[in-house]
């Protein structure tokens, strides 16, 4: 199993039956592939669809039906379409149970940076800044360290923020951490990592949960 798949499979466990879920672009989109058949889950797409279905057969491709990543999709039975203002009303209004988003950096107080590298990348924030203030629970999934091997979980974010104090849980290829009033709490480690290993590759200070699950995924 590659690390992206490992992260996506672990993130799936955060989704409960009956949830309305928004998945960000990238690894978060992959989470949909692992949602257990026992769960009734409705996926929201911020471009105006509640009830994203699987990718279409070639013969059923509809150019007017895409997800927020601009991929052609289908709609499930019982889906609804709406405009962008309604879509973000639904998000901001707290009607979405969980949003799973990608991240470049997360700080120990739950600040998230995932939209901009100054001087390098001009893409825009899309719906991320609205989502982080709307969904009932915000989970960030990402690699624990960047390509240079440096921690992406920091005392303070260096990149421009997407939202301040918005993240509740971080899931990486190595660990699961909760953002609490007392800072980051390590709640699970992935196979092959001890609590000490995780602290050694994390810039932010971690406290270890009394109910820490070692090698949980």
């Amino acid at each position: 199993m590659n690390t992206r798949e490992k992260i996506a499979r672990r993130a799936e466990k955060e989704i409960e039956s009956g949830f309305y879920v928004n998945l960000g672009i990238g690894i978060p989109t992959m989470v949909a592939n692992y949602i257990s058949d026992n769960k009734q889950v409705v996926l929201q797409s911020e471009n105006g669809l509640l009830g994203i279905g699987p990718f279409p057969e070639e013969s059923e491709v509809d150019p007017d039906l895409i997800n927020a990543g601009k991929e052609t999709v289908t709609a499930i039975s019982g889906a609804s379409y709406f405009d962008s203002a309604e879509s973000f009303g639904m998000i901001r209004g707290g009607h979405i149970d969980i949003a799973i988003l990608g991240g470049m950096e997360v700080s120990e107080n739950g600040d998230l940076a995932n939209w901009m590298i100054p001087g390098k990348m001009i893409k825009g924030m899309g719906g991320a800044m609205d989502l982080v203030h709307g969904a009932k629970k915000i989970i960030v999934i990402m690699d624990h360290v960047n390509k240079a091997g440096e921690s992406k979980i920091l005392k303070e974010c260096k990149l421009p923020l997407t939202g301040k104090g918005v993240v509740q849980r971080i899931i990486t290829d190595r660990a699961v951490m909760d953002v609490t009033e007392n800072g980051l709490v390590l709640v699970e480690t992935a196979e092959g990592f001890t609590a000490e290993d995780i602290q050694n590759c994390t810039e932010a200070k971690l406290s270890v949960s009394d109910s820490l699950k070692l090698y949980a995924y």
């Binding site: 911020e46 009303g89 998000i91 901001r92 800044m129 203030h133 923020l161």
Partner: peptide
């Protein structure tokens, strides 16, 4: 932010000069 953009346009067409949103607080 996309939701702010949608709401700003909605407000413009609906005669609402301004509104308050949490999106973007603490960011550029």
């Amino acid at each position: 932010p996309q939701g702010t953009l949608a709401e700003r346009i909605r407000a413009g067409g609906a005669g609402i000069p301004a509104f308050f949103t949490p999106a973007g607080v603490g960011t550029p």
